[in-house]
Nucleic acid binder design. Structure first.
Lengths: 112, 112
DNA sequence: TATTAATACCTTGAACTACGAGGTATAGTC
DNA sequence: GACTATACCTCGTAGTTCAAGGTATTAATA
């Protein structure tokens, strides 16, 4: 009983991650800052959001990772798989849909 | 310790409500269907979302209501106050900001 | 006439996400 | 030696949305 659908706008963090990783291999800590700058400081997602999403995307086969040692520190770099690219596409379309819906509701003129 | 900011896209239901009520006096049950149709079926917010938001907006002085009996049923019609119009404006700007941020992140070309 | 569907209000519990604070560890700077 | 930055991570909880329900009246349907 009562298994809930995800909230209507919850795909966005995942979408941003996938989009950035589709362009370039990146590691978690880097993604935190990339999202902030790529959105013009409009959206700031902390590590508490990023890491769990990365892990769940890897678990379900959308991402694969490799560890790389850089100056004594270990970074975990992520890249998209074919499944991840599909997922990106789906989320992108879904985003355009709700973004367009909201825009329509906000813009349409003042009559009933 | 740990008092959380609201999630980064949580203003949307409130924004849609305020926008529709800015055009026309409406009651809750009507708003449920209006949001669905005004967004081209992209967004569907149930009564469990709408009513609590209406009540909280009235409590904080953004909306005022009047009861009206229509064909034996009681409807509660809501309209914006000056404060509600301010709130609408603020949320609208905030929405454009995050919407623009996301669009930028999705569209910007494939170099770092 | 009985039953069901639609209108109209509402609340509540669970599900889910995002937030933020914290914890570990290394490297560089002051 | 202390502090900041990098880099990984988890966990508790706050805040939202979801779905399902409850009440009551009217209209349609069987």
């Amino acid at each position: 009983m009562a298994q809930s659908n995800p909230p209507f706008m919850s795909g966005v963090p995942e979408l941003l991650l996938l989009r950035l990783l589709d362009r370039k291999e990146m590691y978690g800590y880097e993604l935190v800052r990339s999202i902030r700058s790529a959105t013009g400081e409009a959206i700031s997602l902390g590590e508490g959001v990023i890491y769990p999403v990365l892990h769940s995307l890897e678990r379900n086969g959308s991402l694969k990772s490799r560890r790389k040692a850089v100056a004594g520190r270990t970074r975990v770099y992520y890249t998209l798989t074919a499944k991840g690219r599909q997922r990106l596409n789906k989320l992108h379309i879904e985003w355009l849909r709700i973004q367009g819906g909201i825009t329509a509701a906000l813009e349409s003129p003042a009559y009933a």
